[in-house]
């Protein structure tokens, strides 16, 4: 048990913080501790979690991707157009098209990174501008509201009437999210490919000497994120019931913050699916709790920013590091 805690310190710390917050919010508000609210949290967090597990794979492989959120917007638009051409389609063809387009966009990043040795942050900042600029240019910023019915109809997987007459519902995005989370977990912890990704992120030269195919690693990592971005994009369109070209603009940094809060390391080799999901949930619960506590919505981001800043500062500060600093202070006074 002690070993488990030590090797998953970030996850346990996040769990403890989330638990403490839940206890506090349950006592401080009337509505937090309810099935309806819990389901709501899951429904609203689904898209971010899908993005997050995708980004996690790239971070584990030692890369970073700034372009995935706008890539998701491109996929939304592209998928909506293609579905129109083929006469409507359905969930299966929709997910295949979205996933496929996403993989293509991710593979383009991997191609630039692997073929021309452009480091991932430079390559993806370039593709961020290319994807977003071209999307806005060709769409003129016009949204699509005329989506196929199957895409905009809410699909309720589980529902229960609450005592106050409202309905607690789990909707399709949660199922898709669960499948994506499980698939990512399977990939990175249970398959040889996943372990190679970890090894490549941890020590690229060591991985190379073992004969791991470096190019394949880049294409798998960025392709996986591309696929998740595509699926997440489609689900977001389903959830919002519209396609707005700049709806996901800026989402990349929020997701990045959540994933790293969940213990993934910029630089590679470290990170878990559980931590990643907890990171997204921590932010979602904070926002939800602030809402229920009646805090002005304008203050949410400020508080969340302060929390992340504090979390990063604390998680990077061990006591030994702080002590000499404090001792020096003391000596000078």
């Amino acid at each position: 048990m002690g070993k488990l805690v030590r090797s998953h310190a970030t996850e346990f710390a996040l769990l403890a913080v989330i638990a403490a917050m839940c206890v506090f919010l349950s006592l401080a508000t009337n509505n937090f501790f309810s099935l309806g609210n819990a389901f709501d949290l899951l429904n609203t967090s689904s898209v971010n979690i899908i993005f997050a597990v995708g980004l996690l794979v790239v971070l584990i492989a030692g890369g970073i991707d700034i372009s995935f959120a706008v890539a998701a917007s491109v996929v939304q638009y592209g998928a909506a157009l293609i579905l129109g051409w083929i006469g409507g389609g359905g969930w299966i063809s929709g997910l295949l098209i979205a996933g496929g387009l996403g993989i293509l966009l991710g593979a383009f990043n991997a191609f630039l990174i692997h073929r021309f040795r452009i480091i991932s942050i430079v390559a993806t900042i370039a593709t961020f501008n290319i994807y977003f600029g071209l999307l806005m240019f060709f769409t003129q910023g016009v949204s699509i509201y005329d989506l196929p019915d199957w895409l905009t109809d809410r699909i309720i997987l589980f529902e229960q009437e609450m005592a106050d007459g409202t309905w607690a519902e789990i909707t399709l995005p949660v199922l898709v999210m669960a499948v994506c989370v499980f698939a990512t977990w399977l990939l990175i912890t249970r398959t040889t490919t996943g372990r190679q990704l970890y090894a490549f992120g941890d020590n690229p030269e060591g991985a190379r000497r073992f004969g791991i195919n470096i190019g394949a690693m880049q294409f798998i990592a960025f392709g996986w994120l591309g696929m998740m971005a595509g699926i997440g994009g489609l689900i977001q369109a389903h959830y919002a019931q519209e396609v707005v070209p700049n709806a996901l603009y800026g989402r990349e940094l929020d997701v990045l913050a959540a994933v790293v809060l969940g213990g993934a390391r910029l630089g590679g080799g470290k990170g878990s699916v559980l931590g990643c999901v907890l990171g997204v949930l921590l932010i979602a619960i904070t926002q939800n709790g602030l809402n229920l506590l009646g805090v002005s919505p304008f203050a949410f981001k400020m508080i969340i920013g302060a929390i992340i800043l504090a979390a990063i500062t604390l998680s990077n500060t061990s006591l030994e590091k702080l002590l000499p600093f404090m001792r020096q202070r003391g000596a000078r006074q």
Binding site: L253, M302, I304, G305, I308, L309, T313, N316, K321, F325
Partner: peptide
């Protein structure tokens, strides 16, 4: 100070500062 004393990654620190400052401004 946070970057220098905790060695946290600057992307993270400035990202959370960005979220904070944006929130502060909007508030």
């Amino acid at each position: 100070l946070v970057i220098a004393y905790t060695r946290a990654h600057p992307i993270l620190v400035s990202l959370s500062m960005m979220i904070f400052v944006r929130g502060l401004g909007e508030f």
